[in-house]
């Protein structure tokens, strides 16, 4: 019972952060700012969801696999994000600074 409540909370939190990342991906003004919400999804969203699944699976081989998935994601996603940003900068993509829209 407690297990169910805990995993429900974790999964709900994960679902929330995953969606925030999606909204940010659409809403942010340029490529570099879009990287940040994407990283919210990759770390918090994936972390909470997978942890929620782990609580649900209990101590078993399934949990070990979930941990492996999480570790892979946490190791690869920053590398991919860095490579993306680095390539975009080298390519001459200029980061948006918000000056022209008169942002506060």
């Amino acid at each position: 019972m407690v297990q169910d409540i805990v995993s429900w909370l974790l999964i709900a939190g994960g679902a929330f952060f995953v969606m925030v990342g999606g909204v940010g991906l659409v809403r942010m003004p340029d490529f570099f700012t879009r990287l940040h919400p994407a990283s919210v999804t990759d770390t918090m969203g994936a972390g909470l969801l997978l942890t929620g699944f782990m609580v649900q699976a209990g101590a078993s081989l399934v949990t070990v696999k979930l941990v492996l998935i999480l570790v892979f994601l946490l190791f690869t996603s920053p590398t991919a994000a860095h490579a993306l940003a680095h390539a975009a900068l080298l390519d001459g993509l200029k980061p948006w600074t918000g000056k022209k829209d008169g942002a506060p």
Binding site: F16, V20, P37, A103
Partner: peptide, 24 residues
């Protein structure tokens, strides 16, 4: 660190007005 900054970024993403000032 990830948790606190994720909450901060989420708040900015969901705010009705985008309050961001990106810097490099």
């Amino acid at each position: 660190e990830i948790m606190t900054s994720a909450v901060d970024v989420s708040r900015r993403v969901l705010a009705p007005r985008l309050r961001i000032d990106p810097v490099l």
